[in-house]
Amino acid sequence: MVKNQKFLIYRNPGNGNVNYERYEVPLKKGMSVLEALFYIQDHYDSTLAFRYACRGAICGSCGMTVDKVPSLACRVQVSKIKTLKKPSNLPEIKFGDLPSWDQKVEILIEPMPNMKVIKDLIVDMEPFWKFYHEIEPYLENEWSDNTPESQQSPSEMKKIERLVYCILCGLCWACPVNRINSNYLGPAQLAKADRFINDSRISAAQQKSILTRVYKEDAVPACQKYFVCNRVCPKNVMPGTAIKDIRDNWMNEKD
């Protein structure tokens, strides 16, 4: 017999009229939250809005809040949510009035925190991208296709490897600082800055340029060391540790 799973889903047409709706989805083996959302869109309400792309936790599209935990919807298995160990010490995530929620039975789906909701589970990522651009996330070396390539030792590569894995999903914006300070550059952005300043191939001039930006008060100094970003990051990028690296190892180089 097919078991049904109950969902309680945040809906918002974009005009501020928040409404939580209840759905039941027939459970399939290995079903992810993302698949359940598609089931609802396909069978009950084609206007239910959420972002998606790869369904394999590499594209970073489907960030949302599942049972009060910022998560990639594609990577959370429906059958395991209620027994999943949750990251410790998460800030309270609220989206206005939540109706009665049977926590044992219903899976609660809400948008990503600390971003403006455009429609249902879709948030405005523009500030995220704007701040991402601000840290100048690129190498400014001149392109060359002359062999051989420039060299980098495995240990130099290792220094940036963890940071490179960032998928820019935005879940780390669950940080309490992002909630109160809309000018805060954000954990992912600062982790990306750390990725570039630690790249053995970067020029001194560009390194300085990035550092100048992240020294400003809405950047590294704004971090309150909650390390929520480290705990919610689905790719183990550890943005908080990256910010600590900048603070500990680069700030004193400020001229």
């Binding site: 690129y138 190498l139 070396n141 001149e142 392109w143 060359s144 296709d145 002359n146 062999t147 051989p148 390539e149 420039s150 060299q151 980098q152 030792s153 495995p154 130099e156 590569m157 940036i160 490897e161 490179v164 570039f196 790249d199 191939r201």
Partner: peptide
């Protein structure tokens, strides 16, 4: 050439 160009753009290849 194209792989070397990627590297010059900053691609984080394993080494």
């Amino acid at each position: 050439k194209i792989v070397v160009e990627f590297e010059s753009m900053g691609a984080p290849f394993s080494r």
